[in-house]
Structure formats: structure tokens, C-alpha cells
Simulated scan of single mutants.
Amino acid sequence: MKNINRYSILAIIGGGLLALMININSQLSLETSAINASWIAHGLGSLVALGLFHMTKKRANPSSQIPGPVPRLYYLGGLPGAFTVILASITVNSAIGLSGTLALGLIGQLVCSILCETLGLFGLEKKQFNVIDLLPISFVVFGSILIISQRY
């Protein structure tokens, strides 16, 4: 339970950082373009990641590494990230705003994660999808509708 709490806090912080990133990138895209904002965000992110990599590579746990060669598919994680930045930069500056973008983005994340877990994609453990799983999803969809409908 202690690890779940710690990871839950980290996930909440990550969500807050995602909202901050999307907001800052959308402002940058207004001044330049959505594609330029994506280039700058990923370029700066790459530099930070490279710095963190060099700071922590001596402390890496060898037992946590994937044995054998890394599947090529795993190197493509930046592609959805680039499109996320571009699409979010466009939609935040639309009528749905930051809250609507994040709410609808959360629906997309839920649907994609359920598909990935149900089908066991990308090395995830297969999980059975139950009708009870529709309850929290329906709350998120309903909440998203409320958020977006209040913007007008």
C-alpha cells in the first residue's frame, strides 16, 4: 500500500506537469506555430533527459534492464509525444480551452490504455475488461461534458 500511495503521488505530479507543459506549449504555438512549439519542447526535453541520463547512469540497477536487445517499437515513444504536443497546442487555443483539452485527452488515454491492457499490447499484462470498468469511464466522460459545456 505504501508503494501505491507513492506512485499515486508521482502520477498526480506528472499530470500537473502535463497540464503545465500543454499550457506553456500552447502559448508558444500562438507566438510561433504548433510544430515549432513541439520542436522546442522536445529539444529542451531531450537536453534535460540527456543530463538526467548522465547523472543517473552510474546508479542504474542492472537487474531492472530488459534482457537482450530492446524491441525497435520501444524507440517510437516520442512519436505520440510529438503529436500530443502539436494537437494539444492547437486545441488549448480553441473554444474547449485547457480544461477541455485535458478532459478529452484523459478520455483518449483511458480508451487507449483499456485497449492496450485488454489486448496485452506493448508487453502489458492482459487484463479482463469488465462492465464495472465502464463506471469510472462514464464519470470521466460525464465530467468532461460538464467542463466543456460550461465554457460557452
Rank of each mutant, 00 (worst) to 15 (best):
L18F: 13
G123W: 04
L10R: 03
R59G: 10
N3G: 02
Y74N: 08
L17W: 04
F83A: 11
I66V: 10
S138I: 10
E125Q: 15
E31R: 14
L124C: 01
L73W: 10
E31I: 07
Y152A: 10
G45K: 05
A11L: 09
L104M: 12
Y7H: 08
H54F: 14
A19V: 13
L146D: 03
Q128V: 12
A49K: 04
L30V: 05
L98K: 06
E31P: 00
Q150C: 00
L87P: 00
I148S: 06
L110M: 14
S64D: 09
L18I: 14
R59N: 13
L44F: 14
L20Q: 01
Y75K: 04
S29L: 06
L121M: 12
E31N: 12
Q65Y: 05
S29M: 06
R72P: 01
N3M: 10
I24S: 06
K57E: 05
G100R: 03
S113F: 02
L20E: 02
A60M: 12
N36Y: 08
A95H: 08
G143H: 09
L124E: 06
T56Q: 10
I35R: 02
K57F: 06
G81Q: 08
L52Q: 01
I96V: 14
Y74S: 11
I22W: 00
N93L: 02
F139D: 01
I147S: 02
W39T: 02
S113A: 15
M55Q: 09
S94L: 09
L115T: 12
Y74Q: 08
L115G: 11
L76S: 10
D133L: 04
L18Y: 08
G78K: 10
F83W: 10
C116G: 01
L102D: 05
S29E: 05
L17G: 11
T84F: 14
I4M: 09
Q109G: 05
I137R: 00
V140H: 05
E125Y: 02
V131L: 14
E117N: 08
V85M: 03
L115S: 08
I137H: 00
Q109A: 11
L110R: 01
A60K: 03
